[in-house]
Amino acid sequence: MSTVTETLAPAPADAPRRRRLLTPGAVVATLLLVGIVGAVALAPVLAPGGYDAQDVASRYTAPTWFGAHPLGTDELGRDILVRVLYGGRPALGISVVAALLSTALGLTLALLAALGGGLWDGLLGRVADIQLAIPSILLALVVLAFAGTGFVPLVTVLSIGAWVLTFRILRVHAGTVAALPYIEAARLGGARTWSVLWRHVLPASAPLLIVALTLNFSSVLILESSLGYLGLGVQPPRPDWGQLVASGQAQLAGAWWISLIPGALIVLTVVSLQVIGDRLADHFSLATRKEH
């Protein structure tokens, strides 16, 4: 988090020019992410038979590119390719909703802290520090133990665990924008706080929202998968990436593909999001420096 905040912080005017937005790494990460999300979204089309179809005669079939089961089967003969495609739907769907909500919450609090200053800034900063001191997984375990594992409790705990990242990123930038002369002139001219936020500070902070949303998505996906692994995420028989990793843990020695393949998809998705987020942060920080 500190690395991202430092990347987005103002820099001297003579700072060296950064690379262009479309680097080879960013292109590969984008294509990989689009491919994974597209395949998951089209799961009912690519695998119309459903995720729970069993073929006991094909139990523990190893992956083979030219066979009926390219990524192998599990202990019940269920196709791993089909299950990871369907398992990505709740994992990515819940993560997207939680990332949007956490980004919106972090943005709102960051703008209030930047423009309110004084008591508001100090209070929200301390709340963010307290939130950082509590491990997100611990908070999620406590909440889900009482609230259950439905869609709303999952989205709630994931959103609460991720808003601080957006707050930290946008608080630095929004504070810089709020101190600019034209913002001070608008406030002295009688403009209301919400008007200043909506018309001036928010548009100037909009590019960083994309960065915050990308980074939030990756952190939320990790937490969602961790909860699924612990049995507190999406419940069987519906598959989920974290749940699939846990289901094959006992067979790692003889049937490694049951856990390794969904685990690899989680890693690839998160790494792709991080690469894209870092590249966007690098690009937009340069654009902001040029404007101001």
Rank of each mutant, 00 (worst) to 15 (best):
L42Y: 00
P63R: 09
P44Y: 01
L76I: 10
A29M: 05
L101V: 15
S58P: 03
A62D: 08
V27K: 11
Y51W: 03
P16W: 12
G35S: 11
Y60G: 06
A39V: 10
L46S: 00
S58T: 08
D55C: 07
T30K: 05
S58A: 15
L46P: 00
A41D: 01
A53V: 11
A15C: 04
P16N: 07
D74L: 03
L112D: 01
G87F: 01
R17L: 14
A26T: 04
T23D: 03
G87M: 07
W65T: 01
S102D: 02
P44E: 02
D79A: 10
I80T: 06
S95E: 03
P12R: 13
L31E: 00
W65K: 08
A43F: 10
L71S: 08
G88M: 08
L105E: 14
H69C: 12
A9H: 08
Y51D: 05
Y86M: 02
A15I: 03
D52A: 10
G93Y: 09
A29G: 08
T108L: 15
A68Q: 15
D79H: 09
V56E: 11
R59H: 00
L22P: 14
G93D: 08
L81T: 03
R19C: 01
L81N: 09
L109E: 06
Y60L: 10
A26C: 12
